[in-house]
Structures are given as structure tokens and as C-alpha cells.
Amino acid sequence: MKPPAFDYASPSSIAEAVDLLGSRNGNAKVLAGGQSLMPMLAFRLAAPELLVDLKQLKGLDRIDIGADGVRLGAKVRWRDIEADQRLATAHPLLCEAIKHVAHYQIRNRGTVGGSLAHADPSAEMPGVAITCDAELTIVGRAGTRVAKAADFFLGALETSLAPDEILTEVRLPPWPAARRWGFLEFARRKGDFAMAGIALHYDLDNDGRIVDAHVGAIGVADRPLRLPTVERVLNGGVLDEALIAAASTALRQSIDPPTDIHAPGAYRASLAATLLARALAKSAA
């Protein structure tokens, strides 16, 4: 299929891009990597009057690692993350999650900001953002604001971005060297969207007990989920088979996945519980 007709602009500054977005009363879209937007245009699932291409904007493709954590510009591509060897220690959970993003061709073009703004509930980057308490920098006509990931995702393909706003950066908090973590997802075929996925991390106190557990899930709701019920089960415990079983039970009781053409809701819930158990067991190693 062919996309509908649209106007095209390639601004040279963020301010110009914001003005262009605001000029069409919500009928303009940002074009970054285009790996989600272009198929939607082809299938007439989106029909904006204007595409605002960010290709000329400078400084949005940086990966900065410092005392305040990892900062990823909105135009950072998945392949940039794969190629940056610093991230193996600065944020191993991010690196592991990116391995599951689609196929090589998509990772060569798809961007961090595009994935977050698209807000597919089965996508890996929104799951990482929710799990890791990410902060998102957003620029619009009213100025710059910082949104917590927990407040950014409102539903399937729906975020708190206003029509004239652009996501410019995501910050992931500092990652202690001794932190334990895990990421697992299941798809029918490698590279497909996850039917369910689990991201988690936690620290250990001097007695080997779990503290500050973070557990997130993708593919089981209309947005990525943080699972505080599961976190409460883990916090203060020693990771063993009994604790893993209790956490899996808590997960089953705290989610209600939808049934769709890909899988029944009950299957997704069971799958998520299994992935949680395996991710926790893997994190112990």
C-alpha cells in the first residue's frame, strides 16, 4: 500500500521542529528512524498532514555516561547501543534488552526516542524505562520539562507528549557494579514483538537479602507495567526456590493480560510468571 499524501519538513533546530509540530493542530508527526511510523503510513493507520524529520538536528545521537547515570539522546539507534562497549558495565540490562529488538535491519535505523514515543506495550525500551525509573526530557513551545517514565505511558500507543512536544533524551539512573539483573522475553519468532517479557534488577545487603527490587513487564497490558506487588515479595528475602515461587504467584495475581489473536490472556499470565522465575534464577548467577 501507499501512504497518504503529506507535507514534509526537515528543521535545523529543535525550536524550529517544535514550531512546525505546533502549526498543524495535532496533525503533524515526528519522523526519526521511521521503523514504526512508515509501516503505519503504508497501512493508512496514520495520516498526518506533516512529517517533521529530525535528521538534521544535532546532539540527539549522543550516549553520555557519568555520575548521574546513562543519558541517551532520542536519535540514538539500537546499533549505537550495541556498539558502545561502555554500556556492558554502565547498564547491562539495557544491553540485554536491545538484543531482543526486532532484526538487524530495524536495529540499524530504529531509535530510542522513536520507541518511547510510539509506546508499543510489547516494546523493550519502554519496559526498561519503566523498570529503571527513567526520566525523559521533553521540549515543547512551553519550554523543557522532565517526565518520569511511570507518568509518560498512558496506554497502547499513547503517551503524555503534547502535539507540539519532542522527546529529546532519556536518563537511566546510575548502575552499581554489584547489581543483579535479568531480562527475558518470549516471541513466536526471533525478532517478533514479545508475547510477554520481564525486566528486573535488585541489590543485595550485607546479609545477602534483596533490597530495592525493581520488576517490570511488557506484553501483558496496554502499557509497560511496574509490578510493586512482586517487588514487595522480593524485598528483604533471600533468593531461593521458595522466594521465586512466591514472586511468580504474586505476578499472576497482579496482572490481567488481554486475550487477542496471538494468545489467550491466561497464557500470557502463565508465560510472564515463568519468565519471571527464569529471570530471577538467571540473576543469581
Rank of each mutant, 00 (worst) to 15 (best):
P3L: 03
P4T: 14
A5N: 06
P11R: 08
S12I: 00
I14Y: 05
A15Y: 00
E16T: 14
D19S: 15
L20G: 04
G22A: 02
N25C: 07
G26H: 02
N27F: 02
A28Y: 14
F43N: 04
L51H: 07
L51Q: 05
Q56D: 14
G59P: 09
R62E: 15
G66Q: 05
G66R: 05
A67Q: 13
G69Y: 13
L72T: 04
G73E: 09
A74W: 08
A74S: 15
A74G: 11
A74D: 02
V76S: 11
V76Q: 11
W78L: 05
D80K: 13
E82H: 11
T89N: 03
L94P: 06
A102M: 04
Y104L: 12
I106G: 01
I106W: 03
R107Y: 13
G114A: 08
L116E: 01
L116T: 10
H118S: 09
A119R: 08
A119L: 09
D120T: 10
S122R: 11
E124F: 11
M125C: 12
V128K: 03
V128T: 01
I130Q: 12
T131I: 02
D133T: 04
A134G: 01
L136R: 04
T137P: 02
I138E: 06
V139R: 12
G143W: 10
V146Q: 08
A147C: 12
K148C: 12
F152N: 08
F153R: 10
F153E: 01
L157Y: 15
L161D: 10
L161W: 14
A162P: 00
D164S: 07
D164F: 14
E165N: 04
V170H: 04
R171N: 08
L172W: 07
P173S: 07
W175Y: 11
A177P: 01
G182S: 10
L184K: 10
L184Y: 04
E185N: 07
E185V: 00
A187S: 15
K190E: 06
M195H: 11
G197E: 06
H201R: 13
H201W: 12
L204C: 03
L204D: 01
D205M: 00
N206G: 09
N206P: 01
I210S: 06
V211T: 15
D212M: 01
H214Q: 15
H214T: 00
H214K: 15
G216I: 12
A217D: 06
A217E: 03
G219I: 12
D222R: 10
L227G: 07
V230A: 08
R232S: 13
G236N: 12
V238C: 12
D240T: 09
D240E: 11
A242I: 02
A242C: 01
A242Y: 00
I244M: 08
A245S: 13
S248E: 07
Q253T: 04
S254C: 13
D256K: 07
A263Y: 13
A266C: 02
A269G: 05
L271P: 08
A273S: 14
A277T: 03
L280S: 07
S283I: 09
S283W: 10
